[in-house]
Amino acid sequence: MENSKEAILKRCNAMCKNTLMETLEIEFIDFTENSLTARMPVTPKVHQPDGVLHGGASVALAESVGSAGAYIFLDSENFMIRGIEISANHVKSVRDGFVDAVATLIHKGRTTQLWQIKILNSDKELVSLIKLMTITIPAKKS
């Protein structure tokens, strides 16, 4: 399996097909040795009734990018990733444009991983700060 930046981003974006990530138009756009970044458009589709980005959409973006990060940093052929706890602090609203979610690996244990996800607006201002704990479980063999 090729592990170039382009190949990893292509695999992450392929995972989005027919999922919530596709519905929210989440696109993986960058990868480093300890982080993964995804972008999501802010349109009425992800607004709350008063016309700003819904916190639930931000949390869905954060869990998507954190879980995908755990997936690419682990042996994804033999293990599955599940989010087991998430907490979010929303500090700024966004009405339109794009938000980027940067997931950084804080702790990589044998079974659990701790991720910090910063959601930033187009001016690179903090919109939400989210913490995600994932667990690694054996893949079911078919």
Score class of each variant (00 low, 15 high):
residue 1 M to L: 12
residue 1 M to F: 12
residue 3 N to Y: 13
residue 4 S to Y: 06
residue 7 A to I: 03
residue 7 A to H: 11
residue 8 I to E: 03
residue 9 L to N: 09
residue 11 R to G: 01
residue 11 R to T: 03
residue 11 R to W: 10
residue 13 N to P: 06
residue 13 N to T: 01
residue 13 N to D: 06
residue 13 N to A: 00
residue 13 N to L: 07
residue 14 A to W: 00
residue 17 K to T: 14
residue 19 T to W: 05
residue 19 T to Q: 04
residue 20 L to P: 04
residue 22 E to L: 04
residue 23 T to F: 07
residue 25 E to Q: 15
residue 27 E to N: 10
residue 27 E to L: 04
residue 28 F to T: 05
residue 28 F to Y: 15
residue 28 F to H: 04
residue 28 F to P: 05
residue 29 I to H: 04
residue 30 D to Y: 03
residue 32 T to E: 14
residue 32 T to R: 08
residue 36 L to Q: 04
residue 36 L to E: 02
residue 36 L to K: 00
residue 37 T to G: 04
residue 37 T to Y: 03
residue 38 A to V: 01
residue 38 A to L: 04
residue 38 A to K: 01
residue 39 R to Q: 13
residue 40 M to K: 08
residue 40 M to A: 06
residue 41 P to R: 04
residue 42 V to M: 07
residue 43 T to A: 04
residue 43 T to G: 02
residue 44 P to N: 03
residue 44 P to D: 06
residue 45 K to Y: 09
residue 46 V to T: 15
residue 47 H to T: 06
residue 48 Q to H: 08
residue 48 Q to Y: 03
residue 51 G to F: 11
residue 52 V to G: 07
residue 52 V to S: 14
residue 54 H to T: 07
residue 56 G to I: 08
residue 57 A to M: 07
residue 57 A to K: 01
residue 58 S to L: 15
residue 60 A to H: 07
residue 61 L to I: 02
residue 62 A to K: 08
residue 62 A to F: 02
residue 64 S to H: 03
residue 64 S to N: 15
residue 65 V to K: 01
residue 66 G to D: 02
residue 68 A to W: 02
residue 68 A to Q: 09
residue 69 G to D: 09
residue 70 A to Y: 01
residue 72 I to V: 15
residue 72 I to T: 12
residue 72 I to S: 00
residue 72 I to Q: 10
residue 72 I to Y: 09
residue 73 F to D: 10
residue 77 E to F: 09
residue 78 N to A: 12
residue 81 I to S: 06
residue 81 I to D: 01
residue 82 R to V: 14
residue 83 G to L: 10
residue 85 E to Y: 11
residue 85 E to K: 13
residue 87 S to V: 10
residue 87 S to R: 11
residue 88 A to L: 10
residue 88 A to S: 15
residue 89 N to E: 12
residue 90 H to Q: 14
residue 92 K to R: 15
residue 92 K to C: 10
residue 93 S to K: 13
residue 93 S to F: 11
residue 93 S to E: 12
residue 94 V to P: 06
residue 94 V to G: 05
residue 96 D to R: 13
residue 96 D to A: 13
residue 97 G to D: 06
residue 97 G to Q: 06
residue 98 F to T: 05
residue 100 D to V: 02
residue 100 D to E: 12
residue 101 A to C: 10
residue 102 V to I: 15
residue 102 V to C: 06
residue 104 T to H: 08
residue 104 T to F: 00
residue 105 L to I: 14
residue 105 L to P: 03
residue 105 L to V: 11
residue 107 H to V: 12
residue 108 K to L: 09
residue 109 G to A: 09
residue 110 R to L: 10
residue 111 T to M: 00
residue 111 T to C: 00
residue 112 T to H: 09
residue 115 W to H: 08
residue 116 Q to S: 13
residue 116 Q to V: 00
residue 116 Q to P: 03
residue 118 K to H: 12
residue 119 I to R: 08
residue 121 N to F: 00
residue 123 D to P: 00
residue 125 E to V: 00
residue 125 E to H: 06
residue 126 L to R: 07
residue 126 L to T: 09
residue 128 S to R: 10
residue 129 L to P: 07
residue 130 I to L: 11
residue 131 K to R: 15
residue 132 L to M: 13
residue 133 M to C: 08
residue 133 M to Y: 04
residue 133 M to I: 11
residue 134 T to I: 06
residue 137 I to F: 01
residue 139 A to N: 11
residue 139 A to I: 01
residue 139 A to M: 13
residue 140 K to C: 08
residue 142 S to H: 12
